[in-house]
C-alpha cells in the first residue's frame, strides 16, 4: 500500500456507533472515579482515556483511512510530547523531592525555607 492510499470512510451509522462507545467509556470512567479500587483506579482511567483518544483520532479524524503521512505527523507529535514531558516531569519530581524536605507552606501562603 502506498503512503497516500485512502480507504472508504465509515457510514453515518458507524459514526453513531462509535459515539455510543465513547459515551459508554466516559460513563464507565466517571463511575470508576467514585469506586475505590486502590491502585487500580488510575491505570483503568488511563486505559479508558487512551481508548477514547484513539477512537476519535482513528475514526472521527479519519487517521485510520487517510494517508500514512498524516498518521506519521500526528504520531511523531504525540511521541515527542510524551517523551519530552515524561522526562521533564521525572526531572522536576526528583528535584522537587529534595526541595520539599526544606520548604514549608504556611497558612499565609508564604513559603519559608
Amino acid at each position: 500500500m502506498s503512503d497516500t492510499a485512502e480507504h472508504e470512510h465509515p457510514s453515518d451509522k458507524q459514526y453513531v456507533g462509535i459515539a455510543a462507545v465513547l459515551a459508554v467509556v466516559t460513563a464507565v470512567e466517571v463511575a470508576l472515579s467514585y469506586v475505590h479500587l486502590g491502585n487500580a483506579n488510575a491505570p483503568l482511567l488511563l486505559i479508558g482515556m487512551v481508548v477514547k483518544f484513539f477512537l476519535v483520532a482513528s475514526f472521527f479524524m479519519h487517521l485510520k483511512f487517510d494517508s500514512k503521512v498524516l498518521r506519521r505527523l500526528m504520531i511523531s507529535g504525540l511521541v515527542l510530547a510524551l517523551f519530552c514531558y515524561i522526562g521533564a516531569l521525572s526531572m522536576f519530581r526528583q528535584f522537587d523531592k529534595d526541595q520539599r524536605q526544606q520548604i514549608k507552606y504556611t497558612p499565609s501562603g508564604i513559603i519559608q525555607s
Partner: peptide, 30 residues
Amino acid sequence: TGVSNEKVAMWAFLGSECLLFGALISTFFL
C-alpha cells in the same frame, strides 16, 4: 505527498499543539 498542503499544514499544527497541551498538562501534574 498526495495530500493537500492545507491538510498537511493542519496536521503539522495539531502535532505542535500536542506539545503545547503536553506542557500545560505536565505543569498541572507538577
